[in-house]
Simulated scan of single mutants.
Amino acid sequence: MDIETFLSQRGAARTATLRGAGFSRTFLDKAVAAGRIVRIRRGIYCLPREAGVLGLALKHNALLTCLSAAPTYRLWTLHEPGPVHLSPGHKKTPPGTLTHGRCAHAAHAWLPVAGLADVLIHALWCLPALESLVMVQCAAQRGDVTLDFLRRKLPGNRNAPARAVLDNVVPRADSLLEVLANYHFRRAGLHVRRHVELPGVGEVDFLIEECLVVETDGNTHLEPRQVKKDRKRNNATLIGGRLGLRFGYDHVVHHPERMVADVLAVLELCRRGAFGAQ
């Protein structure tokens, strides 16, 4: 594994970690000189694309938080980070950044990054519901934080919107797309069951109103081997007496209203008997 790949999986790493992975000190010095990696402070390295925000936090004695801290904790996100989110304590942050309040929990052990609890709480206060939801979902299902803990940290009426986001976290989601689709289906008032095992089909992402199977397809579903598998599952779904719809990233993330409209249209046709025997 090359050092770019190694660091891309971690965001940043200490010298000891890199040496343990087989990268010698001489190699690190050459990689820095070549611009492949950046030494953001003594004994800590990252990729050039991460160095800007980490360096900004160090320069202003602040902590990255909210969306800007998501890569450090390998949290799901909907969009590429925009303005840098900082928790500066009592100091002012530079123009063009988004300022969050002081952190209430221990910061990252060796990076200028807020602790995970503060990162998630700041996200719940700052971001639109769906953007904060996917971050919390990722952390909660990994066991990095509990929903009860976050709820205790969000008391009172002013935190009601943040607690409402927590109500949409599910015990398990195999992808960001599942989280988003589940949110939109439930907001539409649909009866939804997730990860249902169907005879001859296997586990499906969603069974809606007990008659319609919905699958959310990420990039892996474009691979030839997976396409063949999906076709077999589609056929088995129909043979088993249920209809099926599939939605990709663009539908789920960028056009959820169309996805929900398609689901409602099929359900309405079912109610009218459009798919019954002639």
Rank of each mutant, 00 (worst) to 15 (best):
I3M: 09
E4T: 15
T5F: 09
F6M: 05
L7F: 04
S8E: 14
G11N: 04
G11D: 09
A13N: 09
R14L: 08
A16G: 14
T17Q: 14
G20Q: 12
F23N: 00
L28F: 05
K30Y: 03
G35P: 08
R36W: 02
I37P: 10
G43Y: 02
P48F: 00
R49A: 10
E50S: 13
E50H: 12
G52D: 15
L54K: 00
G55W: 01
A57C: 07
L58A: 05
L58P: 05
L58Q: 08
A62M: 04
L63G: 00
C66F: 05
C66G: 07
C66E: 12
L67T: 11
S68A: 09
P71Y: 02
W76G: 09
T77P: 05
L78P: 13
G82D: 14
V84F: 04
P88A: 10
H90V: 07
K92W: 11
P95C: 02
L98M: 13
T99A: 14
C103F: 04
C103A: 04
A107S: 14
A109F: 00
P112H: 06
A117C: 07
A117S: 13
W125N: 06
C126D: 15
L130H: 09
E131Q: 13
S132R: 07
L133H: 11
V136H: 08
D144I: 03
V145W: 10
L150Q: 01
L150K: 00
R152E: 15
R152P: 07
P155Y: 11
N159Y: 10
A160F: 11
A164V: 00
V169Q: 06
V169R: 08
V170P: 11
P171Q: 10
R172F: 13
D174K: 10
D174G: 15
S175Y: 09
L177E: 14
V179D: 04
L180P: 05
H184L: 00
R187W: 00
L190S: 07
L190A: 12
L190K: 03
H191Y: 12
R193P: 11
H195Q: 15
V196I: 09
L198D: 12
V201Q: 03
G202K: 02
E203I: 06
L207Y: 10
L207S: 07
E209G: 07
L212N: 10
V213E: 12
V214Q: 04
T216S: 09
L222K: 11
E223C: 03
P224T: 04
D230A: 03
D230E: 08
N235R: 13
N235F: 11
R242A: 08
L243F: 09
G244V: 15
G248W: 03
D250W: 05
V253R: 07
H254K: 12
H254A: 15
H255W: 07
P256I: 12
E257S: 12
R258S: 15
V260F: 06
D262N: 15
A265M: 02
E268A: 11
R272Q: 14
F275Y: 15
